[in-house]
Design a protein around this nucleic acid. Sequence first.
DNA 1: CGCCTGTTTTGATATCTGTCAACCTAGACG
DNA 2: CGTCTAGGTTGACAGATATCAAAACAGGCG
Lengths: 126, 126
Amino acid sequence: MSKQDLPVVDLEAVACCAPIAVRPMDDDQAAAVAPMFKALGDPVRLRLMSMIASVPEICVCDLTPAFGLSGPTISHHLKVLREAGLVGSERRGTWVWYRVRPEAFRQLGALLDIPAAAQATACASP
Amino acid sequence: MSKQDLPVVDLEAVACCAPIAVRPMDDDQAAAVAPMFKALGDPVRLRLMSMIASVPEICVCDLTPAFGLSGPTISHHLKVLREAGLVGSERRGTWVWYRVRPEAFRQLGALLDIPAAAQATACASP
DNA sequence: CGCCTGTTTTGATATCTGTCAACCTAGACG
DNA sequence: CGTCTAGGTTGACAGATATCAAAACAGGCG
């Protein structure tokens, strides 16, 4: 994996957080996590992410034709996903292959968990 | 709940989707879901969301002082979360109270699930 | 080497977003 | 009614973002 793929997001800072339905995040935690959600907050990147995450790996040449967008634009969105730490890329010969980073993806999902205890609290009348 | 709280995001469109680690989303699904992730893609909104989700309900008057931001700015961010369908608000007398919408929150989390089957697929060599 | 294909970077531009100040609205309370 | 407080809305503006065209870069292949 080349230098350009080093994620800007600090995965350890993300892993430290309890689900947001359990404990409020402090400013540093929110600043560490927000870029990951932001990366998924664009329809094109969300589709790219789902195309990448639903197979073991996929070539850019298979991603680009799925959108009515120019190559540079797709490349830009892939870079955002890379810098968010959500995907990694590897060049093999002519083509570049993208894969999901399961640990980042899993940690993001963990933040949206609603533990049973939190549910009970949320359902209790004030 | 007042008219202004009607979410712009179509929750049914969100609920229809398999986890993005299972099946690629089509354009319509991505367009329906992206605004929810986008709403969480700002550090201020992420903190607001976690403050709201970690208690049964909370008053705007308790949210605003937690940030070094003006009232209108907090109000703007709360509107984004409301229109994303992630939270709901209710005025009771002088104050306005915010609550998480558990169904929206749960559906968003479900999109990030990594089912065991998908894991196995992702680990298999092509 | 020189050319071709695939991908990324750069530069330019139109649009969107976060923020504040100023103003407006809803309810409580005289 | 008049006034006070809590929130929301509007307008303005600096900074970010999505997009494309053009150029640059990387590898294969003649």
